[in-house]
Design a protein around this nucleic acid. Structure first.
Lengths: 234, 234
DNA sequence: GGTGTGTGTTGATCTAGCGCAACGACATCC
DNA sequence: GGATGTCGTTGCGCTAGATCAACACACACC
């Protein structure tokens, strides 16, 4: 585990786009790099937050639980994404839990370091605003889906989002590049894993996709898009 | 309609907290003030955004429609709140529609003016980050509610949020200070207005609240909180 | 090899809340 | 004052999807 990242890696982080070389070097100097094996808990819900995180490699599952144990899968973090940063600018506590679902590498900055960097390079602040804005859009869209669409549409939309952000072109389709369980999909779109299982097997029969345990490949993206759009499915 | 606002008014905007007097004066100079009668459409979904808005007086309804005409009530804007600003930092289009539900007064700044002000007073950027962060939290919480809780809880939560942000203490309860329709509540929590109506009349029989046409007063806040929390209602 | 434990499937019921339909109450406008 | 439109209520049947339950794999570890 080396403790200083390669500035070239930082270039691809959404947090630090449009920054000069010099800035990236300064940012790298303040960073802490960690290798995190699959299954590592990076932070837990409600814990005091002191760091801004970004992912270099791997995949992190962000989920939120309510009092009764019900879970919402907020999102999957991929390489280049920042996470756990909102807390620094609100009440200082992580609102969700972060766990790696693949062997991963993260970079992080202390709150103090980040604030310093933001003072020197205001572009970072603008980047954060852009990231948060985009995220609000997405969450609002999901909220609208949840209130207006039926499960099939929501599952289709969840798959499309996964494909967009973690899709790997393979022979005859697009594979999701990390393990996704039925339970994950269920918690992404407010359904039970039973319903998700039923819908997926139905789609598998229609050759829309193929699945092996925890692995998923979309075969007919266009049809999936249609299902996602149309309220009424034939 | 005067075109320059009183700096004292700006002081109470969440956008401009923690700014020096001088800054407020400069901000006031760049502002445009408009009186908007009830029912005015401030912007429509999808339109090109060129302004950052804030409300001085009144109430604005922000809602988002999907292709099929189904609506999501994103939130109600009250005095001091900024709105329609996210668009400037994402794709430049308003993601929702804004309509006044009371006679209102708004201030707005052109994108260019706002960016200039942000450059001179970086605190504004930090404020925006805080506002967006808080908003993500709220939307995520609603998303979690939508996926895990049943309608009664969701309606209770919607009412509690309304009370928190627009509650006026009155004799024997807390009144919502602007007109709210059954349809509004329904679009806030992903239900039909029929269901909302049924639930509200049930609660009225239990003396939890009283309603007259478009007006709503919560009588037993504590009981409502219980309903909002408990998954299972007796 | 057997024995767990975490995952996925599938069937059989049950029910919360939707959809439809009809009506009632209040406000506004002519 | 009547007509028209917006808003709210209520009854009835229906269905999407939850819940309950049982089973079938796959991969671990002993």
């Amino acid at each position: 585990m080396n403790t200083v990242p390669n500035p070239a890696d930082l270039q691809h982080l959404d947090l630090f786009t449009d920054l000069p070389e010099a800035a990236l070097a300064a940012i790298a100097r303040e960073a802490r790099v960690r290798k995190l094996p699959k299954g590592t808990v990076i932070f837990t819900q409600g814990r005091r937050a002191g760091f801004c995180h970004a992912l270099i490699k791997g995949r992190v599952r962000i989920s939120q639980a309510d009092g009764t144990g019900a879970q919402l899968l907020v999102r999957f973090i991929g390489p280049g994404d920042m996470f756990g940063t909102m807390a620094l600018f609100t009440d200082g506590r992580y609102p969700a839990e972060a766990v790696t679902v693949l062997d991963s590498v993260e970079v992080s900055w202390s709150e103090a370091a980040l604030r310093n960097l933001m003072r020197v390079y205001p572009q970072i602040g603008l980047n954060i605003i852009g990231i948060l804005g985009a995220r609000i859009r997405e969450v609002q869209e999901r909220l609208r889906e949840m209130s207006t669409q039926r499960v099939e549409c929501r599952i289709a939309n969840a798959l499309l989002r996964l494909a967009e952000r973690a899709g790997q072109p393979v022979a005859g389709g697009t594979a999701i590049s990390f393990p996704v369980m039925r339970r994950d999909l269920a918690e992404m779109c407010g359904a039970t894993l039973h319903t998700v299982s039923r819908v997926l097997t139905a789609w598998q029969k229609r050759k829309l996709l193929t699945t092996t345990r925890q692995h998923l490949t979309i075969r007919r993206m266009a049809t999936l898009r249609e299902i996602a759009l149309h309220q009424l499915v034939e």
